[in-house]
Amino acid sequence: MKFKAFLTENGMHLLEKRFLPALDKMGKICHLYLTKDHAMFLHNLLNGDGVQSIAQFRKEALFDDYRISSQNDDRIAFVIDVSLLQRAVRSSVSICSEFGDGPTANRLLIKLVKKLPANSTQPIPFLSFETKGYKSAVIQDVPISKPLSRAQVLELQNALDMTQDLPQTLVQVPDLNQLQNFVDRMRHVGDALNVTISKYGDLHIQISTTLVTLGAEFRKLLVIGEQANATAEDQNLTAQTRSSRAVLRGDGQSVQVSVKHFAKSLHCHLTKPDCAFYGIAPQGACLTVIFQFFIPGSRQTDKSISLHCRIPVLDTGSS
């Protein structure tokens, strides 16, 4: 089992400034899953009930000179502590940028190693970051779990395949900051959030308790996938009635999720996505958030980077 690659300058920037800060908020540990073509950071795919987050990079987006080999179809997966990884990348980047320029520019080598830690007889695996400066070399070892077995990798791959089902209707949220600001304040009022998404391009989120109902409605959003024209008679209704009518007509779906989970998924805006879409997976299985990234200086989607979250549903709601 071997893995060795150089992190490109763009890769350093993507990880250090954008993705690792966001992934750190998603959860302390994640799976790092490396294949012949992709590197993926996966949260909560195998265990439990939290927000699943799937960040996938084509190898060229992060690395050059990417070499991987394993007896399991060149796939390697292990568990890593995101904050440790972030610290290692951050300090390696600062060393690189301090000394590196010209053709002999310093590059950041990442490889999988086994080392004998102090006071131990058993070697343990590390993800090692090697930076060569002008006169010095800095090596940082981030401890990782034992690489996953063939069966575990298969299980992870299956779980990953399960996350690929797209909602039939996706609506684009224009201002993630505004939404985050709102949801952060909403957290004081209640724990469960009803989310309704309609084919008319309406997104309605609402908290209801015995004492208070508090909701926000975003209308006329850009719709991807199945869409329909809003009926004129719905225009002057309250947001709540409008949502339930859309659901009754089969033009909308509604799920209930935890406010905390919803707020957590919004932390993904730290990755600086160019757009974000919300949708409800078929059969109301989960609330899906898809983030898109443009090729810098264009409005074309960068297919080499993808990020999406799946927020578990508390209750199937009225769908």
């Binding site: 015995t210 004492l211 208070v212 508090l214 926000a216 409605e217 975003f218 209308r219 006329k220 309250t238």
Partner: peptide
């Protein structure tokens, strides 16, 4: 805003 509104009902 017409297209982004917040509503609350307090008992």
């Amino acid at each position: 805003s017409q297209d982004a509104s917040i509503c609350a009902q307090l008992r």
